[in-house]
Design a binder for these strands. Structure first.
Lengths: 228, 228
DNA sequence: GAAAACACGTGATAC
DNA sequence: TGTATCACGTGTTTT
C-alpha cells in the first residue's frame, strides 16, 4: 500500500505522510490505486473538496432563497423556523385551494385543460329553430373575442346568449348559437357541428402549441351581466 | 493545560491521549475547565454528540415531512429537487393568491378581519322611512343566523334585503334594515344605530375570543339568490 | 446551561 | 466522467 492513494473520490480516507500517500487500512479500495506525490494529492484533494463545498453552498442558497420568498407570503412568519414556515405554507395552500374550490362550485371557473365541446340542444326538422351549445376553455388573449366573433359569423350563426368567465389568465365560455338569417335551410347539422368544433378548436386550442399566444400577465375578469 | 478539558460543548476541539485530556493549543477556552478521566470525557462526548445528531435528524425529518406534504399539492413535482419544488410552491401560491384576489374584486368575499359597520342610508324625519345598512364580517358558525334574526327582531327592525357570502369558513353579510311595524315613531336613530352596533358586535366579534365558537371544518357557501 | 436552529463540509449516489 | 442532489454529523449561535 505504500506510495499509493485512491483517487480524489476518497479524499478523507487517505493518510498523508511525509511524501507518500497511504490508504487507511480499514478503507476498501474501489478504484485503481494511483501513485502520486503528496503535493499533487493534496492539490487535487483540496480542489475537489473546494468545488464540492462551493456547489453545496450554491444549493443551500437556492433553497434558502425560495424559503425567504415564501416567508414574504406568510404574514407573521418572521421568527418561524424552517419547518414551521413550511407548515404554514402547507396550511396557506390548503386554505387557498379550498377557497378556489368553493368558488368553482358556484362560478364555473375555467380549468387548466384546453377543451372545446359542441352540443346540439334542440333537435328540430327545420334548421332555423336548432340551438347549439358551444363551450370552450383556453388561455385568455386579447384577440380571442374578435376571432370568435368572425368564426361565428362565417358559419352563419347568431349568438343567442353567452356566459364567459376569465380567471387567472384563463377563460371559459359557453355560447348559445343558432343559424342566422343568411343560413341555408338545408344545412346538415352534423357537418355544422363538426365545422364549429374545428373552427373553435383552431381558435381556442391550437394557439397554445404555437408561439402565437401571448402570455399576458394582465388578467381580465368577465362575468355574466347578472353578476355585477 | 494538562489533565483538563473544556466540557462537552467542545467535543472535537480536545485532544485525548492515554488517560488525560488536553485542549488543543489554538482553541480558546470559554468554559471552566473540568478535570476528568479519558473514559468519562469520551463517554460524555459521545453522549452529547449522539443527542446532538439525533436532534438534528429530527429537525431534518420535520422539514422533509413538510416538503413531501407540499410535493403532494404540486402536480408533476415528483422528480423535482428541493429548490425546484419550493419554486413551484412559490408560483402556485402566487397563482392562487392572484385568483382569489381577482374573485374578491367582483364577489365581496369575507376578509380575515372581524368587523361590524352600521350606516344610515336614508335620512328622514320620520323613523319609518329610515334605512340602515348593517355590515359584518366574522367566522362562520351554525347559530349565527338565528342569533342575527333574534337581534334584528328585538330591535324592532325588518330585513329589506341581504347580501351574504360565506367563503373558507368566514362569512360576510350586508343587511338593509328599517324599523318594523312595532317600532315606536320617536326612536332616536343614533341610539338605534348604537344598539345595533353593540348587538351585532356581540354576535359577530365577541364569540371569536371566547371558547364559545366552534371551528367547523364544514364550510357553507351562501350567495345572493341571483347567483345560483 | 440545555435544547433548538442554522450553516457548513463531507460521503454517498444518480445521471 | 464530472456534476448535481441528498443525508449526515458537527461547530456555532441563540434562546
Amino acid at each position: 500500500m505504500e506510495n499509493s492513494f485512491c483517487s480524489e473520490y476518497w479524499p478523507e480516507t487517505c493518510y498523508v505522510n511525509q511524501d507518500s500517500v497511504y490508504l487507511l487500512p480499514q478503507v476498501p479500495c474501489y478504484f485503481p490505486q494511483i501513485q502520486c506525490s503528496r503535493e499533487s494529492f493534496q492539490e487535487r484533494r483540496e480542489s475537489a473538496s473546494r468545488s464540492h463545498s462551493e456547489a453545496e453552498k450554491r444549493r443551500r442558497d437556492r433553497i434558502n432563497a425560495q424559503l425567504s420568498t415564501l416567508r414574504k407570503f406568510i404574514p407573521t412568519s418572521e421568527k418561524m423556523d424552517k419547518a414551521a414556515l413550511l407548515g404554514s405554507v402547507v396550511d396557506h395552500v390548503k386554505d387557498l385551494k379550498g377557497k378556489t374550490a368553493e368558488i368553482s362550485k358556484v362560478l364555473n371557473t375555467p380549468s387548466d385543460i384546453d377543451e372545446v365541446t359542441i352540443e346540439h340542444l334542440k333537435e328540430e326538422e327545420e334548421n332555423k329553430g336548432c340551438l347549439l351549445k358551444a363551450s370552450f376553455c383556453c388561455e385568455d388573449r386579447p384577440e380571442l373575442f374578435s376571432e370568435l366573433q368572425r368564426a361565428i359569423k362565417n358559419l352563419k350563426l347568431r349568438v343567442m346568449g353567452a356566459d364567459i368567465t376569465s380567471l387567472g389568465g384563463r377563460i371559459k365560455g359557453v355560447f348559445m348559437l343558432c343559424p342566422n338569417e343568411n343560413s341555408a335551410n338545408d344545412v346538415c347539422m352534423n357537418s355544422l357541428k363538426r365545422s364549429l368544433r374545428v373552427v373553435l378548436s383552431r381558435i381556442a386550442i391550437s394557439p397554445s402549441t404555437s408561439n402565437y399566444r401571448i402570455k399576458s400577465k394582465r388578467q381580465r375578469f368577465f362575468l355574466p351581466a347578472h353578476f355585477s
